[in-house]
Design a protein around this nucleic acid. Sequence first.
DNA 1: AACTGCATCAAGAAATAGCATTGATGTAGA
DNA 2: TCTACATCAATGCTATTTCTTGATGCAGTT
Lengths: 202, 202
Amino acid sequence: MNKDNIIHSQIQPLLDYFQKVIPLNNEEKKLVTEFFKPRLYRKKQYVLQEGDVCNQFNFIVRGCLRMYKVDDKGNTHILQFAAENWWLSNIGSFHEHKPSELNIDALEDTMVLQISHDNLLTLYTNAPKFDRIFRVLIENSFVSLQKRLLQNISSTAEERYVSFLDSYSHLTNRLPQTQIASFLGITPEFLSRLRNKQSKKS
Amino acid sequence: MNKDNIIHSQIQPLLDYFQKVIPLNNEEKKLVTEFFKPRLYRKKQYVLQEGDVCNQFNFIVRGCLRMYKVDDKGNTHILQFAAENWWLSNIGSFHEHKPSELNIDALEDTMVLQISHDNLLTLYTNAPKFDRIFRVLIENSFVSLQKRLLQNISSTAEERYVSFLDSYSHLTNRLPQTQIASFLGITPEFLSRLRNKQSKKS
DNA sequence: AACTGCATCAAGAAATAGCATTGATGTAGA
DNA sequence: TCTACATCAATGCTATTTCTTGATGCAGTT
């Protein structure tokens, strides 16, 4: 399998993704294939490190990433997980070219397709359809973020955990519980006790 | 410990290294401290990934890196290990700004001091002494590379292994044997048999 | 004052991943 | 046919990561 084949084989999930939002013509497919570059991140590797500017918009082909903040005490707080067919970037840092306060790293070996800031602008110019596609994409992210915030300020850890199980059922068996705890904003120990309680219920 | 202290504490081994080649004056030490940035790579993390341009020259403060090529069959061939007080970069990619065919990654958590291509040029301009220092450095690398090549085309695996033990005695206990095998160009199984044979001899 | 919902610390147990070894078998070249 | 290696599969070992549990504490209700 030569390099072109490798790229081609990775790009398909992204084309499929776009296709579902709005069908693409061949010219547009070509642009996508040109501008998005596959890249492999290995488990624990940083995709974006605090202090660096986020210069790539990432689409996950396979694997799983997390975006998180490390607070003054050294505790990590996970804002978002992203697995197959999801997008992940620090949008603030990406658009304003500012150093990121957040980190992104790989929880598994992860293949992403990335487009640089410049190429994304070129893509918008050459194929305005992508303006809409990316608007939809951001809107979706926004909605789920809002939902999560609302839940965070209104629920107990147990409720949040149950709801997590519901929303992320495809991830619960893939993620270590330390990561889930960090996402829920509780300690791994307390999560362990919640789980214990849950399993006794049923 | 604030950031300046961290940098300062990491830079000393590099100053010592230079000092051994040619003594530096304070101005030159200041330049080194300014231009070389410490960076931590975690085990398995890429320092340089195939396809990217090598834009940093790396000095290893602690830990261990490897540089290798992945062939068409997916086998990896290690060109070089580098531990404390060694340098490692893809010099070809670095100087010609060309995408690298080689990968560099960390076999242990590794602290490096890196200087960017631009800053290295500035350093040469501001302190021509570094022209000489880096010439010496490259010459040394060249010589050991030549030695290794010669050995490769003229020795059996067993001879190469014995010679490896001799040259890299400080590393043999730190490196997994899979890595040593990949460096020697044999399979881990065959290395295991060689070792077995060796230990029966003595 | 007692109870609920969480945190922290320490210790172990359990699960997984990575590594080393061995046996069986194969092959190319001297 | 012998030497110097490779490949594949199985197994055991070790180290690392993850999960669980107990003990203790504390802030905010009730």
